[in-house]
Amino acid sequence: MTFETVGFWVVAAVLLASSLAVVLTKNLFHAVLYLAAALVATGAVFLLLDSPFLFGVQLLLYAGGVVTIVVFAIMLTERLVGARIAQTSRAVWHGAVVAAAVFVGVVGFLIRAPWPTARPALPADLTPAIGQALVGPFAATLELLGVLLVIALLGALYFARTDD
């Protein structure tokens, strides 16, 4: 086994374990920490796929950004309010069934696709290619996402407004 194969299995194990822990743990704060671990592990998957740029973005936006905001929400609601909020995943078994169905579906697709045994040769540096794709063929999509974020921002401002 090569270094990359070992790395992949380790990361996959961490990713699966922490993702399950996010759903199953009772303690809300611990769930967020497991989420952070899962997001970092996802970043490591990107790294194993020779995409350091996506690794960086994953860390910056999700592990650094999204987790921080979730923690902020928990801190504001839980301890300062005084009540302890436990995570209740009531429909765990329904969820498990749906997850299994999705897994079977995805695997069903994958099995039909031909498995390329050799990895296709990559250009030396993928990062410029990503950048050029974003401002070239996907420029309209990028702009639309920007509009979406502005709308979200305006919505947040609307909810946060004071009454006077």
């Binding site: 920490l33 952070a36 970092v40 350091p52 740029f53 690794f55 960086g56 973005v57 994953q58 860390l59 910056l60 592990a63 650094g64 950004g65 987790v67 921080t68 540096d125 990062t127």
Partner: peptide
């Protein structure tokens, strides 16, 4: 080749 991005991304984990 993503040195600066790596620096910013990793240092943002400090908050955790």
């Amino acid at each position: 080749n993503i040195g600066v991005l790596f620096f910013l991304a990793v240092s943002s984990l400090e908050i955790v």
